[in-house]
């Protein structure tokens, strides 16, 4: 303001400058505690959720044995109640697997197209299209699945009903696609240009460069994209609830109605009287879901660490 920068030490700093300096010093001193506090908040939140879910889940053992939780029948209101979560665990795995088998190749391919091959105009179009896909609420996906995908699956495979694991996988793949594709695209874009140049200069085609150099170099980022896509698929409730059919019967088939863990909780939480065996059993489903999420993330971290060590 007076034309002198703060570097001018020959003059005593003006009051305004002194205040500005004090403020900056304060900000510099505060940034570590603030970030620490924010990090702590998310950690504590996670811990609180975990403790709460587990605490509400444990009392179910007053009614049934731990091993019976992996039983094949879920009859929460019969006498005595059966809380076999196996059908829902299997269904969650099945539907997630199906979604990933579709979403990962498709997501990686579209990322490869957007990052490596598409001309700029097409790239922008494809990217905004993906963002649009990500912005659609899950209930809309569910409605689309219920009215379009499920009848289509039913006619194609000549089934009694199209509300089954396959329809759920298709919808989930569509929902996980933007996550997988945009994260994969980030990973591909982050591969240094010099790798591409080196490959091209050796007489590799664009396709060979993408496939043999860019993709392997981006492995850890691509892996992260796949894991987050998986998280999206495992955790989705609404859309699955609308298209999977929600039969609690145990099945390993994609062509039969299935009930996932999330759908199971959503379907029954409202009816379960607070504090009842059924209520605790539903929290146990939540704990299982949490465990699956932690296990996959842990496994992914471990795997990624191993690969990174090999790459060194």
């Amino acid at each position: 303001m007076n034309g002198n920068g703060e570097m001018d030490v020959t003059r005593a700093p003006s009051l305004a400058n002194r205040r500005r300096l004090a403020l900056r010093r304060f900000a510099q001193k505060m940034d570590r505690p603030v970030f620490f506090a924010l990090g702590l908040v998310s950690l504590v939140t996670l811990g609180v959720i975990f403790v709460f879910v587990v605490r509400e889940a444990i009392p179910v053992f007053r009614y049934v044995s731990p091993s019976s939780l992996l039983g094949p029948a879920w009859h929460p209101t019969s006498e005595p109640p059966l809380f076999g979560a196996l059908p829902m665990i299997v269904a969650t795995g099945l539907v997630t697997l199906g979604a990933l088998v579709l979403a990962i190749p498709l997501g990686f391919a579209s990322a490869g197209f957007v990052a490596e091959i598409a001309p700029p105009a097409l790239r922008d179009l494809a990217k905004s299209l993906l963002e649009l896909l990500a912005a659609i609420p899950s209930v809309v996906y569910g409605f689309f699945g219920l009215t379009v995908v499920a009848p289509l699956v039913q006619r194609t495979f000549n089934l009694p009903t199209g509300q089954n694991g396959l329809s759920a996988s298709l919808i989930l793949a569509l929902m996980a696609l933007p996550t997988v594709a945009s994260l994969a695209e980030d990973a591909l874009t982050a591969v240094p240009k010099v790798h591409r140049e080196a490959s091209l200069a050796l007489g590799a085609s664009r396709w060979q460069t993408t496939w043999r150099v860019v993709f392997p170099s981006a492995f850890s980022g691509l892996f992260g994209a796949a894991v987050l896509g998986m998280g999206r698929a495992v955790g989705e409730t609404m859309a699955v609830l609308m298209v999977a059919g929600n039969s609690p019967a145990l099945t390993w088939s994609f062509l039969r109605p299935v009930r996932t863990l999330t759908a199971g909780i959503a379907l029954e939480m409202a009816e379960a009287p607070s504090g009842s065996a059924h209520y605790h059993a539903l929290f146990m489903l939540g704990a299982i879901l949490l465990l699956i999420a932690l296990a996959t993330n842990g496994l992914a971290e471990w795997f990624r660490g191993r690969v990174a060590r090999q790459g060194e």
Binding site: W74, Q154, Q163, A249, P257, R259, L267
Partner: peptide
């Protein structure tokens, strides 16, 4: 256990009308 379970009247109507 083999039944389909729908979470709303609307989903029920849509399901029956298309199956």
């Amino acid at each position: 256990d083999g039944a389909l379970f729908q979470s709303s009247n609307g989903a029920m109507a849509t399901t029956v009308a298309s199956t």
